[in-house]
Design a protein around this nucleic acid. Structure first.
Lengths: 240, 240
DNA sequence: CGTTTTCGAGAGCAGTGCTCTCACAGTAGA
DNA sequence: TCTACTGTGAGAGCACTGCTCTCGAAAACG
């Protein structure tokens, strides 16, 4: 992503972005399955075949949109987390949850693109795993901070700890989160499983709301807020 | 669904089923977006236009597949629940969870059709809400049974109860579960919110596993089992 | 300057959902 | 039983899709 040196390279980068933008607009209207390279070309007033100079095929265009969606949702989560006092772990969780939820509500098709059914015959390339983990890493930092400060409440009911290779594997994941595993010690597998559970609950809730599974609940927004709070508390997060 | 009286009606019902079966087969191979009416027609050796005598359009065919998927997953959940001792509430939860997970793993595309992104421009008709609620109703029966028997452990941490109209609405939902709200009393909103949280966590977990979000976890099946157990215990379910 | 690379446009292929028309076969009423 | 009706299958056709190929022009490079 260095600065384009020739005029040609500059206009190429610009056009690439314009195509992606038009595709995103069209995605918002018709969804992933309705995304048409020809329609994108029409909107930009160019021949459909010319688009193939910039994206080799539809999947490559989808990949660009997927990466940008992961980045957008990850940035929203990180910003929300950063805006809350470091020690208010429940507040940080709530903030990240609301941010993810609001982002999804504002861009349902982009959200569905990354957290809905995988596009058939399409495998996300490795370049998307980095952006894809930003949200869970933000959640993980919160849990790790709480554990480090001794402020992660013990699970109030007897639950078997993860054991054996699974425990080792979970503990190893902590090395990837900002702040790392220092100061967490033997609690690492427990901290990571709580984080993954929270992460799963968050996206399960957001998806269910967005995809219409909560049709039986009338006060949906209030319900979502309430259930996220419940999850955070049950998993040991506390306010300052 | 009465018995067809004329020969024509009989062969019509049969062909309708055959078309749906062929579509399901094709769905398993190419996913929802790759489901082609023409390919279905080819497989059955008939003209593509003839299929339209049985399903007005692609969406109607999809609706049939969606309904049958909901029914299949609901039946699997109910059967799993019924096979466990009524008083073993944690065991019932575990059984339903595993059943849903196994069903999804065996038929990923059918699962994605109902719990993945909604097909764009397609709205599920009312005829699918019945089958769609079978799983959550099975879970609800378990929670309600536990509450009735005084065996739903109180949440071990202070969590604000749902209040106001949301609480009333949650309580009202209990009327729909097998066994009803009798004997649950004032705990109804709490029981329902726990059930919905469990339901969300279950499908969040199954979807994340199926859609590849757990790529960082190597011992995935063990992890899924562990996290479902954790959820059940945290939400107050106990073994006999 | 000439050569090479890059790019846009157009035609074309194979496939899609869906509609329309037309001929035929099964059904029901006189 | 004959007739009118209705359900059904086949075929042609429309507008659309992703994608490939070729060709001429323009920009970049030596």
């Amino acid at each position: 992503m260095s600065a384009p040196r020739t005029a040609r390279a500059r206009v190429r980068a610009e056009l690439t972005r314009e195509i992606a933008d038009a595709a995103r607009r069209q995605l918002a209207e018709s969804g992933a399955a309705g995304l048409s390279l020809r329609a994108v070309a029409r909107e930009l007033g160019m021949a459909s075949s010319a688009v193939y100079r910039y994206f080799a095929n539809r999947d490559e265009l989808l990949t660009a949109l997927i990466a940008s969606a992961y980045d957008g949702i990850g940035a929203a989560a990180e910003a929300a987390d950063a805006a809350v006092a470091r020690g208010d772990h429940l507040g940080r969780w709530r903030a990240v949850g609301e941010a993810v939820r609001d982002w999804a509500q504002a861009r349902p098709h982009e959200y569905a693109l990354v957290y809905g059914s995988p596009v058939p015959g399409y495998a996300a390339p490795d370049s998307t795993v980095g952006p894809a983990s930003r949200v869970v890493l933000a959640l993980g930092a919160n849990f790790a901070d709480a554990a480090r400060g001794g402020r992660l409440a013990p699970l109030a009911v007897p639950v078997s700890e993860p054991s054996g290779p699974l425990a080792a594997e979970l503990a190893a994941l902590l090395a990837g989160v900002p702040g790392g595993a220092e100061g967490v010690g033997a609690a690492a597998p427990d901290v990571v499983r709580r984080c993954l559970a929270a992460w799963t609950q968050l996206f399960g809730t957001v998806s269910f709301e967005l995809f219409g599974q909560y049709a039986m609940v009338g006060h949906r927004e209030e319900y979502v807020r309430h259930t996220l709070e419940l999850t955070g508390v049950l998993l040991g997060l506390r306010a300052e």
